[in-house]
Design a protein around this nucleic acid. Structure first.
Lengths: 248, 248
DNA sequence: CGTTATCTTTGACGAATCGTCAATAATAAA
DNA sequence: TTTATTATTGACGATTCGTCAAAGATAACG
């Protein structure tokens, strides 16, 4: 009279299966190649079933983005464990951000798509809430780090500015640099002269100098510091990047 | 035996007519609403004729972007005529950049699309060359300004850095800030706390301080300076922004 | 004026894609 | 076995893109 079939966490398992399949398509054929029809063909489910889990293609992309952000959160937390000054840790966050983007270029591009192509509007409410929540948990350790640096006097908070604004300034440089130099290869005429890692480090150093974050760039050997980051906390990312270079 | 019909500059006129129509669609219904079929319906020409002028939808978007960049070039040149220190002029460029984006939000979004959605690949070769050329003419006065500031000692070029890298650092902050705070309204969880103009000015001041560009932010009244820019050289943009706010 | 060679314009067409929904299948209690 | 409920399916309509063979327009030439 009232029995039914349920899927307690089976739903999650299937959702994951679908997301993995979607990611595989993106990794092998590029983000533009992700199509519902193509996804359905590769999946042992029908289109209707896929639409029982995701409300639209954008919903799938946002789900992939959320998963990526969760992994970035780990990278950031690892960056903050770097042995060194508070400024070195702040720098490590951006080194980690870049290495992670280079190690997972498709994920990086997915993040760009979400931030620019209005994906969030077409995605489900639930997925949007997840997105906000992950973003918050991503940023809070960063905020905390800035807070302690300011409180300890290593970094100067300009008059009238909040911690969040300092962090946002760093974030916007990071995002802008990576986007301009990694996104669409042809879109930046300067690209041939510029190197992503070098420009990102330069820009971050400029802005941290602007915050008077001690020690200033000219007063410490950040090249050695970055080299140490790559071996001590980002070895996995560096190895994966090397693999990608060989393959291509 | 060999007569034909030509269109010397009539072609350009028609192209302009098509672009204006496309822009009107975007302004009234949003960028996503721009469709070849919709465009053709509003135009006194057939689809085939449109495709005689543009190779694809992306080609149209890149053409619109190029026109926008040409107008930005004017804004930048105007910014550099601002009466003040070299640092104030550098700041004026970014104030102009922001005001222009706020006064022409659709154009701004078109620029984002081009930089992110791989438009350039699908556009025609000719249009891509135009794009590169406009970008160069857009940046060269900026480079020249940085050059004179460095040469005069008002701005310190960090060891090992080139002028172009300094300019790129400013560009990436500008781009990143505007994108994160103006692009997709929902995509940035901090958005409610942050204000585009304030954050952009803050970030630019941080990075210019990092370059030791005299006078430092704390040593001059840049709020007054910006107010003066808005009346002296960007009155048109400010007026247009006011119009938009009333309408909406 | 009619012919003709050449260029232009047209819009119907095939292909790809999205999201929907009525029909069908599957399930477990009664 | 029956039945009420939910899950799954894939054909379908709606859009959109870009193409192309056919029709139209033009101006020199006879």
């Amino acid at each position: 009279m009232s029995p039914k079939i349920f899927s307690p966490e089976e739903k999650d398992a299937r959702e994951l299966e679908m997301l993995n399949c979607a990611k595989e398509i993106i990794c092998t054929e590029g983000e533009a190649a992700l199509t519902i029809d193509k996804l359905v063909k590769k999946l042992p489910y029908s289109k209707g079933t896929v639409y029982n889990h995701f409300t639209s293609k954008e919903d799938i992309i946002l789900a992939l983005c959320n998963a990526h952000m969760a992994s970035i959160s780990q990278v950031f937390n690892r960056a903050l464990t770097f042995e060194g000054s508070s400024r070195e840790k702040a720098l490590a966050v951006h080194v980690g951000s870049l290495l992670n983007a280079q190690a997972n270029p498709q994920d990086f591009m997915i993040g760009i798509t979400v931030k620019t192509a209005g994906c969030t509007f077409k995605a489900s409410e639930l997925r949007q809430q997840q997105h906000q929540q992950i973003e918050t948990s991503l940023l809070s350790p960063i905020f905390a780090h800035f807070r302690t640096a300011v409180d300890s006097g290593e970094c100067t908070l300009p008059e009238g500015m909040m911690i969040e604004q300092l962090a946002f300034a760093c974030w916007s440089v990071d995002f802008g640099t990576q986007l301009l130099l990694m996104g669409d290869m042809n879109s930046c005429s300067l690209r041939s002269q510029l190197n992503v890692e070098r420009e990102l480090i330069n820009s971050i150093n400029l802005i941290l100098d602007g915050m008077c974050w001690q020690p200033l760039a000219k007063d410490f050997d950040w090249k050695a510091s970055i080299a140490r980051m790559k071996t001590e906390i980002f070895a996995a990312e560096v190895a994966k990047i090397a693999t990608l270079k060989i393959t291509s």
